[in-house]
Design a binder for these strands. Structure first.
Lengths: 261, 261
DNA sequence: CATCTATGTCCAATATAATGTACATGTGAT
DNA sequence: ATCACATGTACATTATATTGGACATAGATG
């Protein structure tokens, strides 16, 4: 998970980009880190990171926490995030949909979106029979690793998909290489059928179901997913897909609709 | 609500600071704006704002919404804010406390914190008899205008308070000037008593009650407040304060305690 | 038609931000 | 004691980011 390094090496990075690289890195790590550690792990000059961290601390974007000079995301980010959530008011409806899915299926239900050019679980409702879920809420994951990923990029052309997804993200967690053309074929299939299901690539014991939640532009702004034990998933496939489609219908056009204006 | 302009005029502003100035401005406005409008209203060079807005759009920090090139806070901010909330896990306990207060008093209850050098309502639970609340959730308000403000700066020295609060924030909404020494005296009184109550300065018909929620460092990391009609507030003063203290006790040390680590 | 404002783009000038390097300190291992 | 490493600070250099202003367009107004 190294620095993106933009395009050319040897160029200076822009402060803003580095700053958000730091913030994203802390989000991924989900823990407070020393500036020195941040610099080492994202491959940025230490002096730059110290400079930026101090600026971000002054702005309340970062906060000291965890002692020994460690920093983590700050309160200001919470306020800004809350303003976003308030504007694009999807939380309430989203929770209701997850609740409904949990009631009807007793399985783990997730609401997922793109985070830049990766996939992330925005909200999750654990099933009645909890097992170790491979991806936590808020972690970003390569798009090709997920069922939802097939739906979330379906509005792009083949070429756009290849440009959009970082090439190394086609390397699966087990080390295998997923041929981009294979992935694209699955995207088109998912687009036609309005759903995608498969045995998880990330672990060896779950089956994943994903259906699109359509935004104002008509394409998948988010997905609703079920993550089930493989036997259960295959046994209840039709019923689970019905539940998902019903729940997604209740959200359609919602995730991107502003509350006012 | 003009730009902070930092210290000296005529100096170039740092991109990072301008960027967060833009974000904060959009949060205050709570609506999408055109880059041109942003530039005009925060008093920044148009070319700079266009440049920064484009950078922020690329990073997902801002998003196009509302048409005609208008931009608002982006999804990335939501993710970062959610990570903050997840780390400093105060939401669940906070909601429970507000719920409890609402049950016991039927009045409007608020959970408030500092946002930089101003005050903001983080969460609110409307009372049974709703009236027009003068400050919305997420709006930042001068510290001296609020009861909570007396508690939230009580850990600072007199001199630090004067440095911390922007001088113009002592100008009350009705145009009167609140003498900083008067304010400081009220801060010290609130500190001794562990509470502050007054007839609202912002409107003419409510009474405000505030008690501290203490963080790890022992000082007020947040406050719990009740906003009541003046008659009710004065009639039920003792009971309301008991309710507040009970609820705050349940939150103490919570707002700043990390879930892990 | 002429004028004014709102909006967005482009570009050169220069103030300065990002960086590499040196320095200082503490800690643990050899 | 000596070395290696982690951590933080200070500063000069130079690549570049910020800025002012020119330019283009579209509506609105008189």
């Amino acid at each position: 998970m190294d620095a993106v390094q933009d395009e050319a090496a040897g160029k200076r990075a822009r402060g803003l980009d580095r700053a958000f690289e730091i913030l994203d890195f802390l989000r991924q790590k989900r823990q407070a880190l020393k500036p020195n550690e941040i610099a080492a792990q994202i491959g940025a000059p230490r002096s730059s990171v110290y400079e930026l961290v101090n600026l971000l601390l002054q702005n309340g974007i970062l906060e000291f926490t965890g002692g020994e000079g460690r920093v983590y995301l700050g309160r200001k980010l919470y306020f800004l995030g809350a303003a976003y959530e308030n504007h694009f008011d999807f939380t309430r409806e989203c929770e209701a949909a997850l609740e409904q899915l949990a009631d009807e299926t007793r399985e783990t239900a997730q609401f997922c979106m793109l985070d830049g050019n990766r996939y992330t679980v925005v909200r999750m409702r654990e099933g009645a029979r909890p097992f170790r879920i491979s991806t936590d809420v808020g972690q970003s994951v390569p798009i090709p690793w997920t069922a939802s990923g097939r739906l979330l990029v379906a509005h792009l052309s083949d070429q756009e998909i290849l440009t959009f997804i970082p090439p190394q993200d086609f390397r699966l967690p087990n080390g295998e290489w997923l041929e981009p053309q294979t992935f694209i074929a699955e995207v088109r299939q998912a687009e036609r059928e309005g759903l995608f299901t498969f045995n998880s690539i990330v672990d060896s014991f779950t089956h994943c179901f994903a259906v699109p939640v359509r935004g104002e532009e008509g394409h998948a702004a988010a997905t609703l997913c079920l993550v089930t034990p493989r036997d259960d998933g295959i046994a209840n496939r039709d019923r689970y897909l019905d539940c998902l489609k019903k729940a997604a219908a209740g959200l359609d056009h919602a995730p991107t609709r502003p509350k006012r204006g």
